[in-house]
């Protein structure tokens, strides 16, 4: 089971890099959606079949894999955003940063004092790498929607970390975060549309002139 889990986490880590390297918004959203769906399956693998876990898994897959991406796509279409991502940090440097971060996360996780049952899994490095990827996206992209994708990957990293505690804490917290995020994305979708109509741009660099 650990092997399957590791493959899934590895896939999520690969999707991090895909997200960093994708030069078009639909690709980025697709990567994020796929990562959310992959993560959603994990609780079922880790836990015995329990109706609550199954429910949360289904909710996660539906939320992260379907609802949020659909919202983002709709916002993108509604606001008529250019599909090309305009990077602040170029794609190749951010890819190399992400790869370096992933390697560092693996090395760091080996040094961390983990429980023996978690030592063999990739959960901790995966979570660290995802958080880092999220940060790189947040720092290095200019469009509001790609920044939202950065938040989503960041949250996925936190979700991965939360999986470590799956036996200790109820999934309620995770569900709460997910709900917050869905609402957040929903709101951002609306705001993005409004900003686009009002100012004709979604470039966050240009939005800085809006202060007072």
């Amino acid at each position: 089971m650990t092997a399957t889990l590791n493959v899934l986490v590895g896939l999520a880590m690969g999707l991090n890099l895909v997200a960093l390297g994708s030069s078009r918004l639909p690709g980025l959203i697709r990567a994020v959606a796929l990562q959310g769906a992959v993560l959603g399956v994990m609780p079922v693998l880790m836990h015995a079949m329990d109706w609550r876990v199954t429910l949360v898994a289904i909710a996660t897959v539906a939320g992260k894999g379907l609802v949020i991406p659909t919202l983002l796509r709709r916002a993108m279409r509604a606001a008529n955003i250019e599909r090309e991502i305009d990077p602040f940090i170029g794609f190749v440097p951010s890819l190399l940063l992400g790869a370096g971060g992933t390697i560092a996360a693996v090395a760091l996780a080996q040094a961390l004092p983990l429980l023996p049952e978690h030592a063999g899994t990739l959960l901790v490095p995966g979570s660290l790498a995802s958080v880092l990827t999220g940060f790189v996206l947040l720092i290095g992209r200019t469009k509001a929607i790609s920044q939202v994708c950065g938040y989503l990957i960041l949250e996925n990293g936190i979700f991965l970390f939360g999986l470590l505690l799956i036996h200790a804490t109820p999934l309620l917290v995770e569900a709460g975060i997910l709900l917050d995020l869905t609402v957040g994305v929903f709101v951002i979708g609306i705001i993005v549309d409004r900003i686009q109509r009002a100012f004709d741009t979604l470039d966050t660099r240009k939005l800085t002139v809006l202060r007072e």
Partner: peptide
């Protein structure tokens, strides 16, 4: 995007 693709290949090998 050629450097990007090649970097991807490099990362896969890495």
């Amino acid at each position: 995007s050629v450097p990007l693709l090649l970097t991807t290949a490099f990362l896969m090998c890495l």
